[in-house]
Nucleic acid binder design. Structure first.
Lengths: 133, 133
DNA sequence: CCTTGACCTTCCAGTCACCGGAAGCATTAT
DNA sequence: ATAATGCTTCCGGTGACTGGAAGGTCAAGG
């Protein structure tokens, strides 16, 4: 099938599919006219990639996952380790964002938000120590 | 003061400070020898930028915050609105990551993680419907 | 006075994971 | 025969920097 059909079948934009070929993630066959030719296995892999990317795995993670996917003899522990590492990254990111949210949220609450020029948000950003009452 | 001193004083790498000049965020004076010359106000603004970036504000947010910071007559409501929008973005990102975390976490838990080749993580990624027991 | 070394300058390229668009073939529909 | 898609490659841009090369400037030591 042509790249357009692969796009329909996998849900990945053609641009992205070509990009994945550029970086050697999924290199399809070519027809005589130079068109890319995707088979059923390729579409499966594209769908696989779409899901993995949707779960936030990096391209390099995906490369590893794909090769594990292709390896009929791999241990599930290998996959689990990768997913586990990624889970930790996600949790760390969540914790970081929650810290930001709390800091920002207390600033927003402290700011009366009217037409007066004094603003605790700018005060904090410019280094004025916060009122500790 | 030279850029090295500004780096010390603000905590921002010299590379970043030059970049901020490139994009017109903070353009310092120049000495006769071509060296950048940062004053006390510049250092304040650099510190301001470092804090705002640390809170996850984008460069364009920072540009707006800086101009509000410089405007003695601005209303605190303007700043609050910007911070509020950013707070919502952060909260949305947290919610998204929590969704990812939950999805990934249940996959990791479902995977026995031993030497056997069957693995629910890869099954899910490749589109095999999960067991619904 | 000369050299060494630290510090400064500009510019170019790379990061990550694509997206947009242009110029030019191939195929399909009318 | 022509027009409209669809495909190809290549170039450039995104955000927010970071690294490095090539070269100018400055302060200290011999």
């Amino acid at each position: 099938m042509n790249i357009g059909a692969a796009e329909q079948a996998s849900g990945l934009p053609a641009k992205t599919i070509r990009y994945y070929e550029d970086i050697g993630l999924l290199v399809p066959a070519r027809r005589d006219n130079g068109y890319r030719d995707y088979g059923q296995t390729d579409v499966h892999k594209l769908t696989f990639l779409k899901r993995a990317r949707g779960l936030g795995f990096s391209i390099e993670d995906c490369r590893a996952l794909l090769s594990l996917y292709e390896d009929r003899n791999r241990a599930s522990a290998d996959v689990r380790a990768l997913a586990h590492t990624h889970l930790h990254r996600i949790e760390a990111k969540i914790a970081e964002l929650e810290g930001l949210r709390d800091a920002l949220s207390s600033l927003v609450e402290a700011c009366h938000g009217d037409a007066r020029p004094d603003c605790p948000i700018l005060d904090d950003l410019s280094g004025v120590p916060a009122d500790s009452h």
